[in-house]
């Protein structure tokens, strides 16, 4: 299965969530790979704690592969290469976790038929050995997003590999509007898909939203807010809900709500269960990652209400 993570704005926690989902899938015994298609700022190396590739590899990453400079993109075995001890101690019965990093100073590229062909070839190839292929796109409309939309319409890929899209947005008015624009807007994903070989409406069925950095009003008391602030928060939250429904981002299209987590705000990293025991991470966040990792596969999440 192909899982594509995207967002309209930066700073949504898309990459860190996608990396954590990949980690959780692997923990559950599924062979998982993570493709860093955020060519402008490939940070997955840093999130997985792999020394020396904080901002992509010096040569042979995905960007160079798609350009045709190398025959195969570089792979990094996260369990073996991470500098975090808690990741290197790979538990028994876990799946493989392989990172395909981007390139240092990769930047955008123009999509032509050769690039598209290499993309399809790579995805078909990875489907042979991985249960889950997770692709992290850059924020906003990118050539990489268009490439994946075109690639997933390719009959060779489409008949073999189911593609699911996760659109990340923060729980704010601006972010909701931006995410709706990215999906439903005039030159949004749905429109582009319809023009590039996807069956009408099929992409919409494959898109779910991930709300990030969410503060639930019910938790607000615990955060020490005053009564007036809580009332205000409740009203704003309800307005946001109305707005989301209006723009097609209502509950039934939401796959996950990730709570605001201070640890992730300061340092984007994989949250292990040990981090929770050490009180470094919130159990709620890890729980949300874990549930999302489960729901990207389960049928119920993806059936229309």
């Amino acid at each position: 299965m192909l899982v594509i993570a995207t967002s309209d704005k930066g700073g949504t926690g898309r990459s860190v969530t996608a990396c954590n989902v990949a980690y959780r899938r692997a923990l559950r015994g599924h062979d998982t790979c993570y493709l860093d298609f955020d060519f402008g700022s490939p940070t997955s190396g840093a999130i997985f704690g792999i020394a020396g590739i904080d901002h992509g590899v010096a040569s042979g990453g995905l960007h160079r592969y798609l350009q045709g400079d190398v025959a195969e993109p570089e792979r990094v075995d996260v369990w073996a290469a991470s500098s975090r001890r808690s990741l290197r101690a790979r538990p028994a019965a876990t799946g493989r976790l392989v990172l395909f990093p981007g390139d240092l100073g990769g930047g955008e590229f123009t999509m032509d038929t050769d690039v598209l062909h290499r993309c399809v070839k790579l995805l078909v190839r990875l489907d042979e050995e991985f249960d889950h292929v997770i692709v992290d796109l850059s924020a906003g409309r990118s050539h990489a997003a268009e490439m994946l939309l075109t690639a997933t319409a390719d009959p060779e890929l489409a008949r073999r590999m189911e593609a699911r899209w996760l659109v990340f947005h923060r729980w704010t008015r601006q972010h909701i509007t931006a995410a709706a624009g990215l999906v439903h807007g005039k030159s949004g994903l749905v429109q582009f898909a319809a023009e590039h070989g996807h069956r009408k409406g099929s992409l919409l069925e494959a898109i779910r939203f991930v709300r990030t950095a969410v503060i639930s009003p019910d938790d607000a008391a615990a955060r020490g807010l005053q009564a007036t602030q809580q009332t205000w928060l409740r009203r704003v939250n309800s307005d946001l809900n109305d707005r989301a429904i209006q723009l097609g981002l209502g509950r039934s299209f939401v796959i996950s709500s990730i709570p605001l987590d201070p640890v992730l705000q300061w340092r984007e990293q994989i949250l292990t269960d040990a981090d929770v025991y050490d009180n470094l991470a919130n159990a709620g966040t890890v729980e949300a990652f874990s549930r999302l990792a489960e729901d990207i596969e389960s049928g119920e999440t993806w059936s229309r209400p």
Partner: peptide, 17 residues
């Protein structure tokens, strides 16, 4: 070979080459 249209791509189990 793996891209042959005669193969349906629905692998019962996956493994690295």
């Amino acid at each position: 070979v793996q891209g042959s249209p005669l193969l349906d791509g629905r692998l019962p189990l996956r493994a690295p080459r």
